[in-house]
């Protein structure tokens, strides 16, 4: 035992009875909340890496239209603006839901989640209508390499949003049935991260696919 620890132990004998000193001396493992959030963050980053592969494929195949239509002939920017507004607002209301969860307010939580769900469904409906119109006109994913890449990239994001909405509904049900238990809160933290990350990917999609596509 060194001089300092000896001094410390005799400096204030009462403090040794409390746990604070022990905790301060040994951090121990991080709480589950930190570990869960960090693990999910790693998953999200791997998801973003997967999307970057689709983006790379899209950028490479951008010019290979096989005589078919180019992006600027297909995209309706007003549609995209509405979609963007829906997703952006839903990201905000998801933030409102996490504030309500911190404040343990069930009513506001369910309200914010319901608005998030409606906005997400509106986004999916607009995107579905756009896809259906493209396929009806014969510009489906089998028309050209460019359209295959377009449908893969944007459709993959749409699938993520659909999965997110399913997850959102189960979160609403879990909070309704079990309240803000610690494990439910961890799940909600992961859900909020997922939803915000989807919005980040959509920023890349509307900039690279729609805006750059219609500008060129």
């Amino acid at each position: 035992m060194t001089e300092t620890t000896f001094d410390h132990a005799h400096g204030d004998p009462n403090r040794l009875r409390g746990m604070q000193d022990v905790v301060a001396a040994h951090e121990g493992p991080a709480p589950k909340r930190i570990v869960t959030g960090y693990g999910f963050w790693i998953f999200l980053l791997s998801d973003i890496v997967m999307f970057s592969c689709f983006f790379a494929a899209y950028a490479v195949l951008l010019g290979n239209t096989a005589g078919g239509p180019k992006g600027s002939e297909l995209f309706d920017l007003r549609n995209v603006a509405v979609e963007t507004g829906c997703l952006l607002l839903s990201s905000f209301t998801c933030g409102m839901a996490s504030i309500a969860a911190k404040a343990r307010n069930r009513l506001y939580f369910q309200l914010a989640m319901a608005v998030t769900c409606v906005l997400g469904l509106a986004f999916l409906a607009i995107e579905g209508r756009e896809f259906a119109a493209l396929v009806m006109r014969g510009d489906g994913p089998s028309r050209s390499a460019f359209l295959s890449a377009f449908f893969t990239l944007v459709g993959c994001h749409g699938l993520h949003v659909s999965a997110g909405i399913l997850w959102l509904l189960t979160m609403m049900a879990q909070v309704f049935a079990k309240g803000f238990r610690a494990d439910i809160e961890r799940r909600f933290l992961c859900f909020a991260l997922f939803w915000h990350a989807l919005d980040i990917i959509w920023v890349a999609v509307f900039s690279v696919v729609y805006l750059l596509g219609s500008a060129s």
């Binding site: 746990m19 604070q20 905790v23 301060a24 951090e27 121990g28 991080a30 709480p31 909340r33 930190i34 869960t36 959030g37 960090y38 999910f40 963050w41 996490s98 933290l189 909020a192 991260l193 915000h196």
Partner: peptide, 13 residues
Amino acid sequence: GFEWHRRSDLAPG
């Protein structure tokens, strides 16, 4: 102990 950790580390989000 929990509070102490809260000040030292943050989960993403």
